[in-house]
């Protein structure tokens, strides 16, 4: 290991493994995506309405903003381990763990997005006679959409990354190969790692493009590549959340 030639060979072998095991990797990718999709669907249904509603009322900022800090502090490996301890092994356990990890970034972003909509725009809408529901649907949501979407994007990439750990808790994903070095050897582990990395990057890129697409044209100009730079605490009205992907 370490010398240039062997390193090259390792990766050549890894790509050969991918070529030889397309069908296996494809099935594991589908398992991976099924796990991700199920967890995201549940997390979306819980987090988005709650975040949007709290943001609309401008209430619960402490919980809505700090939940993402706590979420970030939860090691995904530990969370899956807790799941094993509490729920036993299997698809449902892993999915629950992923839901728990996906909720915080989406909830916080949805809250911050709606809460931070320009109060002048909201006031103007009220002044023109819109009902609270109309204000939410016609003004707050369109203006908040890019930021809400940034939260979804963060969560998706995070969940894809964490789903790699699923085999540790008895569910199937691309991680099956990575954690089973005894069976697949280094080329297999590397090949699967490449697949996971590509999957995450593709998800990140396509969601970045989608995020652009849902951004109202009036908001596009002048935004610096659409994201974060976490401001100092206390000035954090537009805190955006990103997670490193465990």
């Amino acid at each position: 290991m370490g010398a240039g030639g062997t390193t090259m060979n390792d990766f050549t072998d890894a790509f050969r493994f991918i070529g030889d095991n397309v069908s296996l990797l494809w099935h594991l990718t589908l398992d991976h995506l099924a796990l991700t999709g199920a967890a995201m669907a549940i997390a979306l249904v819980v987090a988005l309405p709650l975040g949007v509603w709290l943001g609309h009322l401008h209430r619960g900022s402490f919980v809505a903003i700090n939940i993402s800090n706590i979420g970030r502090a939860l090691p995904s490996l530990a969370l899956i381990a807790f799941g094993v301890a509490l729920l036993g092994i299997g698809f449902v356990n892993v999915m629950v763990a992923l839901v728990v990890l996906a909720i915080p970034p989406m909830l916080t972003n949805a809250y911050v997005a709606v809460d931070g909509v320009d109060p002048d725009a909201v006031e103007a809408a009220q002044g023109m006679g819109m009902t609270p529901t109309e204000v939410l649907l016609r003004v707050e949501l369109p203006l908040a959409l890019p930021l809400i979407f940034a939260g979804v994007r963060t969560a998706v990439v995070y969940v894809i990354a964490t789903a790699t750990l699923a085999p540790l808790a008895g569910a199937s994903s691309l991680g099956n190969v990575i954690v089973d070095q005894a069976t697949y050897r280094l080329p297999g582990v590397l090949g699967a790692a490449i697949c996971v990395a590509v999957l995450a990057l593709v998800a990140e890129l396509s969601f970045a493009l989608l995020q652009r697409a849902v951004t109202p044209r009036g908001l596009r100009a002048g935004r610096r590549d659409g994201e974060e730079a976490v401001p100092p605490p206390g000035e954090g009205r537009r805190v955006l959340v990103r997670y490193a992907n465990s």
Binding site: I178, A192, A193, I194, A200, A244, N245
Partner: peptide, 10 residues
């Protein structure tokens, strides 16, 4: 963006 388990292995 690269999942950590993958990056460690790579």
């Amino acid at each position: 963006t690269i999942p950590s388990l993958a990056l460690f292995q790579l």
